[in-house]
Nucleic acid binder design. Structure first.
Lengths: 132, 132
DNA sequence: CTCTTTGCAAACGATTTGCAAAAAT
DNA sequence: ATTTTTGCAAATCGTTTGCAAAGAG
């Protein structure tokens, strides 16, 4: 696992944000032409395998990434079904369940807890569009 | 919302299984050439909107569907990162958090809790492949 | 008869892969 | 010098869309 410019830039970009980032966003976030979109994919895959990054999915199935090492354990999000914006949710621990699974024989455990809804802003916007 | 052969067949197929099904599986599950794959997509989208079906995502981001009306509230799963098999997990309620979110102004709430790991069978298979 | 749903083909977007060049160790 | 990582192009995968024909109410 080598240290390269794109990887550093990616980690910096991730560090700048608290919310999970979609790959495309992340790519644009980088300095102009810092690296290819494919490289973003490949680096994130490596990062995830090593465990310094966590992947989750938007309601439409596209992937988001965020650092696992964030100071605050903002592990869970509400994702707006309409605009895709993600906000952190204070939540409870799931370690207990993971213990149970380990006992069942599962290895390399991870989990994903995500809430979906329509955020206030989108509700307003959508109702406007419908009433017309 | 009309009652059609494909829709009936789909609901039956969903009812036959306890674990969430990937669309492709679901399509093959139907009687030979019961309907087009596209129809499966469209029906499931309708079902989800109406709320009789629930969508979640595998670790690789592909969608799974399961009936919401299942007798047992087997809402949460462990998904094997290697073979994709899903098994139910007994789990705790999240209604409390949803209330909080409602108070924050979110509407049309849903959520997704998923555990990922490598199942015992895959661990065995993978270690065999590596040691050679 | 009207409106909805279907099939098929084709478009689409996100992600992955092959391969040779460039960079890191 | 060796091995990993990158860029580019093209392939692939799951999913969505347009449109005319078939089916449901």
């Amino acid at each position: 696992m080598r240290i390269t410019k794109p990887r550093i830039a990616l980690l910096e970009a991730l560090a700048r944000h608290s919310a999970p980032l979609v790959i495309e966003q992340l790519h644009q976030e980088l300095a102009r032409n810092a690296c290819d979109l494919v490289t973003v994919y490949r680096c994130l895959a490596v990062f995830e395998q090593v465990g310094i990054v966590r992947r989750s999915f938007l309601h439409n199935g596209t992937a988001q990434y965020e650092l696992t090492l964030s100071s605050t354990p903002k592990r869970y999000n509400v994702v707006c079904k309409s605009c895709g914006a993600a906000e952190p949710v204070d939540y409870f621990p799931v370690e207990g369940i993971q213990e149970v699974l380990r006992a069942r024989g599962y290895a390399n455990l991870s989990h994903l807890v995500e809430f979906f809804g329509v955020c206030p802003a989108c509700q307003k916007a959508n109702s406007k569009r419908h009433s017309h």
